[in-house]
Amino acid sequence: MARILVVDDDSSLRMLYERELGDEGHDVTTAASGEDALKILENNQPDVVVLDIKMDGMDGLTVLDEIMKRDSTIPVILNTAYSTFKADFATWNADAYVVKSSDLSELKRTIDEILQAQ
């Protein structure tokens, strides 16, 4: 059981993550934009942030930088439709990188790994 913040501008996906990760027993909060996410983070301390990269308004990498500035201990999983960026992942400060898939098992496994490491 962990507190998870899901940041994604796609409402269907927010619904899916809420349902699926909720079924896993997690406490899921969702944010529809980077700005919303940062606002939520002002008052909350999630165990993991699942962050979309390409979003309208503030993009995921800027959000990532902001989070790192405020509290670099929060684990962040980049979750994106762009498999293209996988090779660039090593240059970013995120803890993991997962390509979006209808099969959420990779995301779930990554979350579990990060939680166990803490």
Partner: peptide
Amino acid sequence: LGEVSSQVAHEIRNPLTAIGGFARS
């Protein structure tokens, strides 16, 4: 085409992930 496709990917993959994800769920 790869560049263009990256843009399209975002538009297609998200709904596809939602459809498949809910179906699995």
